[in-house]
Design a protein around this nucleic acid. Sequence first.
DNA 1: CTGCCGATTTAC
DNA 2: TAAATCGGCAGA
Length: 207
Amino acid sequence: MSNILHHTDFRKLPPEFYQRPTLQVAEDLMGCFLVRSTDRGLIIGRINEGEAYLGVGDKASHAYGERRTRRTEPLYEAGGIAYIHLIYGMYHCFNVVTEGEGIPQSVLLRGIDVVEGFDAASLNRYGLPFDALSKTQRKNFANGPGKLCKALGIDNSLNRESMQGDRLFICDSIGSHHRIPPTVERSKRIGVDYAEEARDFPHRFTA
DNA sequence: CTGCCGATTTAC
DNA sequence: TAAATCGGCAGA
């Protein structure tokens, strides 16, 4: 059996998918497959958690009030690229930019279930093969934005990366994995208690 | 330039 | 419950 993925074996989500209302994109991303290709091989994870950040009117968004700095610039580009930032000096967060050019919104990817490339991901995260991990380590392997980035080897070098490229993209079908539309739940976003009324927006999606 | 803080994670 | 650790940001 070949591990090589034939071009007909996967369907990348097109730019038009991302260039829609952010809440809809966030919901539709649940159950899709995040794909990362590195020299350690292909890592694939089923997306099970994400949060929508609605830009200028959202006090939890980096682009609140049209804040436009070197950091937030990718958010203003057309949907379908990566927005990656460092948090607490040591963890990366990966967003996919949504909506059209000039509308600075995104979806923060917060959790995946790895389905391919366990050892590559485990080496990225712990420097150990997957079967060397404890039960707890496996259970909490990529269930947070920083953990997800560590597992997939995502850092600032992928900021602004197009989701139409080959290093980092999202599919609704890849190889033997096919999206099954999940039951999606909504809740308050994590870690935005400072954001006044926006702290209560039900913009977190779980699959 | 100074000083504070964060879309987090982990260890104690 | 608190430390780790540093770029971004606002204000002086």
